[in-house]
Nucleic acid binder design. Structure first.
Lengths: 335, 335
DNA sequence: ACATGTCAAGAGAGCGCTCTCCGAAGATCA
DNA sequence: TGATCTTCGGAGAGCGCTCTCTTGACATGT
């Protein structure tokens, strides 16, 4: 039965009493077809339930009308519940829907996965590629760009390749957070940083260092990997190393949630003894004990903007190489 | 430049000094090609960096080597941070990777989105369709099945259509949870149920009702929609209606998290005054105050199994129409 | 009246691949 | 040794679509 009955352009043409070319014109929103004929074609299409065969179409147009979103499957951020992953997908999806294109999702965790992604994307099976949450220096984006395949990254590529990217203002957000701590009288401000091979980790730490330095305070740093477990461990380290700390900026809400718990277990009251500020403003932030003051980043908007840029690029247009979205300090009870 | 330089089968054939057909055989893992020739072809492929054009291939094979995963974008569960969405995707993705197929993700939120999904999937642009987290009675799965397109759902389709599905043992899990409450001396056990138009909501409520009835206890029900906000509201209702309750089974961890907070605000101690059990075992469950006792469901495994079933179906095989995965009660401090 | 211009619709050539024949070797048997 | 069989590789016909080229019909200018 396979393709049985699946009507082709030819069938529609016969039914409408016109040529294939004309049907094609109508289907693709032609302008130069007489109203009467156009309607006849539309009627035939409806009656036959005709749906264009995309494979055939892309064979000749060299377009696929689909774009790939590549995410590092093993990235803790991606599969932690900080909503980063769903948020990006949702944003991308919305924009693609508007452009009537498909989203091919690829998780590049294992080396085999990376290989597969490379093969697929370099094979021009998609019109463009979106890279989310890059780890370290991945050679693939640059390679694709070199092959002339449109690429947009989330976060400035670490290897300095001049690839277009969309990111949020990490430094500005952190700066506001730390300034808030300083403004409320905190002086011994520590940080729990993210991984040093991810842009978000690097930038947020840089923002912290800049701001405490500018205020003449000393930095106290512990490093995590954005997960709760690492946040708890880092908080314990910090308490051991700097028992006098009176505030901590945590580079992700997840780690902050764990830090809050660790502080409670250590008998420190938040925010009385120690003020805590997170980053992300995940939904859970409002439900921690106490509710978490945090830096909000517009995750979904990142996805949307990345997609817009990519589509523009794929359409042959030019774009600004970097797009930085604003962050916002959300005050709750923890600081 | 477009397709410039992109090598075709023809080019590989010329370089290897054989015919297109032979190259095709080698590329597709032929059996009847002499070792020597096969190697020559592989060398030519490597040298030219040849990647098969999938559009051309699927034009003739009538397969697309990609499957669609359809999720209702507006479903609260999908974009709440209960990890359902990422978990499913991850599971699906793993299985597809093993089968070397692509994942086309479609969010069917708006009516326009649903229309788009219908158009795309009925147009045979994918080899099969996975439906996650169905809301109410969606006619699309049945329609696709009728068209002969392989379909697998997550959760028993509500309209009773005999579509294959994969789900977890909601009733069993809830039953164990409620029995645990009863076993620890609770007698006035309420529930915060999920939405009545989703399988998970219905089944978990059914499990609750059955179990309390079997123990000769009366049911106290408030309804939420799996989100935190609704959980808080439901908990407040419950406290108002049944101020004497000593336990509550909550149909999702997110709602349970909110319920915990509401109870705290109302001055009830957990678990001393009121025991709380959730459902999902999201990562956050271990970090609530107090840590949440909950029913774990193997989300990722749902994704994997759905995919396996679908691939089997797409390969022309037959499958058991229903696959129910086990749930497990995870004891922490809230009950 | 004829030549020229304009615009709509048809003819036909592929896009790159798979796969069914078929034919050319070499192997086997009487 | 000749006939039959078995392997293995080539030729060629499409898969369904788009798009250029061309023709035909009609309007316009002189």
């Amino acid at each position: 039965m396979r393709t049985a009955g699946r009507p082709t352009l030819e069938a529609v043409a016969r039914r409408a009493g016109v040529s294939r070319a004309t049907v094609s014109r109508v289907v693709n929103g032609s302008t130069t077809v007489a109203e009467e004929i156009r309607e006849a074609v539309h009627r035939a299409v409806a009656e036959l339930g005709y749906v264009p065969n995309l494979a055939a179409r892309s064979l000749v147009t060299q377009r696929t009308d689909s774009i790939a979103l590549v995410m590092p499957e093993d990235a803790n951020r991606v599969f932690s519940d900080d909503q980063f992953f769903p948020g990006i997908i949702r944003g991308v999806s919305q924009e693609l829907e508007a452009a009537d294109k498909q989203l091919v999702l690829m998780l590049a965790g294992s080396p085999a996965g990376r290989e597969r992604v490379a093969r697929y994307t370099t094979g021009r099976h998609v019109d463009g590629v979106l890279f989310a949450s890059l780890h370290a220096a991945d050679p693939l984006p640059a390679l694709l760009a070199q092959l002339g395949i449109p690429v947009v990254c989330n976060g400035r590529p670490l290897d300095g390749a001049g690839l277009p990217y969309v990111d949020v203002d990490h430094v500005g957000g952190v700066s506001r957070a730390v300034d808030h701590l300083i403004g409320t009288g905190r002086r011994r401000i520590a940080t729990i940083a993210g991984p040093s091979d991810m842009v978000a980790g690097i930038e947020r730490l840089a923002g912290y260092r800049q701001t405490v330095a500018a205020a003449g305070l000393s930095a106290r740093v512990a490093v995590g990997d954005f997960t709760r477990e690492s946040g708890a461990a880092a908080m314990r380290d910090l308490l051991a190393q700097h028992p006098d700390l009176d505030a901590v900026f945590v580079a992700s809400d997840l780690m902050a949630q764990a830090a809050l718990r660790t502080l409670r277990e250590a008998g420190r009251r938040v925010p009385d003894d120690v003020a805590v500020i997170g980053f992300d403003d995940t939904e859970t932030a409002a439900y921690t004990e106490p509710p978490l003051t945090t830096v909000r980043q517009p995750i979904q908007e990142i996805g949307r903007q990345m997609t817009r840029q990519l589509l523009r690029l794929a359409a042959g247009g030019s774009i600004e190489p970097a797009l930085v979205l604003p962050t916002e300090l959300i005050l709750r009870d923890s600081a």
